[in-house]
Write a protein that binds this DNA or RNA. Structure first.
Length: 608
DNA sequence: AGACTGACTTGGGTCCATTCCA
DNA sequence: TGGAATGGACCCAAGTCAGTCT
């Protein structure tokens, strides 16, 4: 997962490839002459997966780090940059000015036009004002931030225009910071930290219809930070004149530092990068659990199908919910505190208003229509035919309920997970998502690819398999702002290529005719040259067409999350290996079903 | 049983450096 | 060589789920 590490590793593996070819002695020499480098490589190729894991619940024995990097202090605006209230310039105190700049920077954003955002911002802003400011500034509509806004725009423009040297200097400074604070020592190994920079203050931007949007996310100070490290390590030093909130030595957790965030009151952590042993082991374990589910999923499916007939309502609800989680890869759906977050749901928290039942729809029977906002306020919309028993159960669950009532009133995620735990050790609702995602990739890869496809065709096949997973998991994205334009550009290229092709074909034809007439060697060679040219252009055209297809199909599908979190990497590796020998099948086309499911759903309330 | 909290995974967006291509 | 496309790093919000407390 650590892209840079991957790059480094790749370089190393190339070395290794070399070593396979070269005689062994040479590799030994190399190791002797490049002792330092070899030692570094030794560290980089540490195979933690070949080592024993802790069995006592501890996560490490030794942990040493330098603590977090704090956000740079606020730099007051130059005097020439004015804030106007009611048309008159007004010099703000530094704390009030800082908060004002957060708003000023967002002026072009749709957020700042939203009532809740403005209300929350203004309330929190006033808290930062002096009593004098507070008495003067009473109406946000009379505030004019546009001068400030232009100043920041000019600043970012200036940053873009910086000379190469200046840019290089900044880059070096970042690198220095990374080297100093970006790594820790955990159990004899240097590991990359994921987020060693503390989140800077700013205005909270929730996703979807968030009741807290616009609130002030306050600046985090050393006094807010809890440090976690080992007793026998060199402890991180707080900045001069400050103190940590606490230093603790808890090796039952993986985080290096934490603080409590002021919007939701939740805890934020500094943890290691995905390339670390501690994240890698967990990730591996996740896929192993999914593999264990594969072995007993038939039994579990039979069980919940049986449970559809149960005398007990709670068991029927549990069984129908589990069916949805399995078949549709829905999330568990924990309860949420009302008014604290956007109104989104998962399976267990579905409400009556989120589904519609159709005994008959077109040529299908027992169709359920889902329409709700899931995680990140991404809309889930789907129509699926279900088995009659499920349908009848749903009708039963809906009886005498209001739209805002819970569909599964006798069920929550805790009950469901306790049940799942009894069915298989370590089984929870989300394991079904992992399992179904990975098995879908495996099946689709098998169905879509074959080894004598061209490289672009293979990539398309892989992306389509990946896409099938993303669609299953409802991983949507807003179409990129430049989508239409880039699509057009591609189409133009295709048109040009097609013209080129027909021209090249004409030339080939002419050359052939020429050869027929003269029968000399020179004209024969000319035919060959033209034939090659046609072939090359055909390949280029095909590549462009595949690219266009891929891009079009991916318009509002986000592949990243599934690639990163749901697809067992071993499946991709196995697929790659399987393509090495030829197999003789031809490429299949995209199943029509996928296209219909990737229609424009979009995020309903979508922060640009 | 239910509320609450802490720790950890999953999520899409944005920005910026690199790559690609005419 | 410059502008567009691309892809990855980074950002930080929003989920899941287990354990504890009441």
């Amino acid at each position: 997962h650590d892209k840079k590490a991957k790059k480094r590793k790749h370089e190393y593996e190339e070395d290794e490839e070399d070593e396979d070819i070269k005689p062994k002695k040479k590799t030994k020499d190399k190791k002797v002459t490049e002792g330092k480098k070899a030692k570094k490589e030794e560290e980089e190729k540490w195979k933690w997966w070949e080592e024993e894991r802790y069995t006592d619940g501890s996560k490490w024995r030794f942990l040493e780090h330098k603590g977090p990097v704090f956000a740079p202090p606020y730099e007051p605006l130059p005097d020439k940059v004015k804030f106007y209230y009611d048309g008159k310039p007004l010099k703000l105190s530094a704390p009030a000015e800082e908060v004002a700049t957060f708003f000023a920077k967002m002026l072009d954003h749709e957020y700042t036009t939203k009532d809740i955002f403005r209300k929350n911002f203004f309330k929190d802003w006033r808290k930062e004002m002096t009593s004098e400011e507070k008495s003067k500034i009473t109406d946000l509509n009379k505030c004019n931030f546009s001068d400030m806004n232009e100043y920041f725009k000019a600043q970012s423009e200036a940053r873009k225009q910086m000379s190469k040297e200046e840019k290089q200097k900044i880059k070096e400074e970042n690198e220095r910071l990374l080297q100093e604070y970006g790594f820790c020592i955990m159990d004899n190994h240097k590991e990359r930290i994921g987020n060693f920079r503390i989140e800077p203050p700013g205005l909270f931007r929730g996703r979807g219809d968030h009741p807290k949007m616009g609130m002030l996310k306050r600046r985090i100070r050393p006094e807010d930070i809890i440090i976690n490290c080992s007793k026998d390590s060199k402890h991180p030093k707080p900045p001069p004149g400050t103190k940590w909130k606490e230093v603790r030595y808890d090796n039952k957790v993986t985080w290096l530092a934490s603080w409590t965030e002021n919007i939701q009151g939740s805890i934020k952590y500094i943890m290691l990068n995905p390339s670390s042993r501690i994240k890698g082991e967990k990730d591996w374990q996740k896929y192993e659990t999914a593999r264990r589910l594969k072995k007993c999923v038939d039994r579990i499916r039979n069980q919940y199908r049986d449970d559809w007939k149960s005398k007990e309502m709670r068991i029927r609800q549990r069984a129908v919910a589990l069916y949805f989680i399995d078949k549709l890869a829905l999330r568990a759906g924990n309860e949420k505190e009302e008014g604290e977050t956007a109104d989104t749901v998962g399976c267990c928290s579905l409400r009556v208003e989120h589904i519609k039942l159709y005994p008959k729809m077109d040529d299908q029977e027992y169709v359920v229509e889902f329409d709700f906002l899931g995680k990140d306020s991404i809309r889930y919309y789907n129509k699926i035919p279900v088995e009659k028993r499920v349908f009848k159960n749903l009708q039963l669950f809906l009886e005498n309920k209001q739209p805002e009532d819970d569909l599964f009133d006798r069920l929550n995620t805790s009950i469901l997970n306790k049940h799942l735990q009894e069915l298989m050790d370590g089984l929870t609702a989300k394991v079904f998502r992992t399992y179904n995602a990975s098995i879908t990739l495996q099946q689709q890869l098998k169905e879509l690819t074959c080894s004598d496809d061209s490289i672009p065709a293979k990539i398309l096949s892989y992306n389509r398999a990946n896409r099938a997973v993303a669609i299953l998991c409802n991983h949507q994205r807003a179409p990129p702002k430049t989508f239409e334009k880039s699509m057009q550009n591609l189409q133009t290229k295709i048109d040009e290529k097609q013209n080129q092709l027909s021209a090249a074909r004409k030339q080939l034809k002419a050359a052939k005719a020429d050869h027929k007439a003269s029968h000399d060697d020179k004209s024969k060679k000319a035919v060959e040259v033209k034939r090659k040219a046609v072939q090359r252009i055909e390949e280029q055209l095909m590549k462009l067409q595949v690219q266009a297809t891929d891009r079009e199909e991916n318009k509002q599908i986000a592949l990243g999350t599934s690639k990163l979190n749901y697809l067992d990497p071993r499946i991709s590796v196995a697929w790659y290996v399987s393509l090495l020998p030829p197999c003789g099948k031809s490429m299949r086309s995209c199943p029509a079903d996928w296209k219909t499911r990737s229609q424009r759903w979009g995020r309903v309330v979508h922060p640009p």
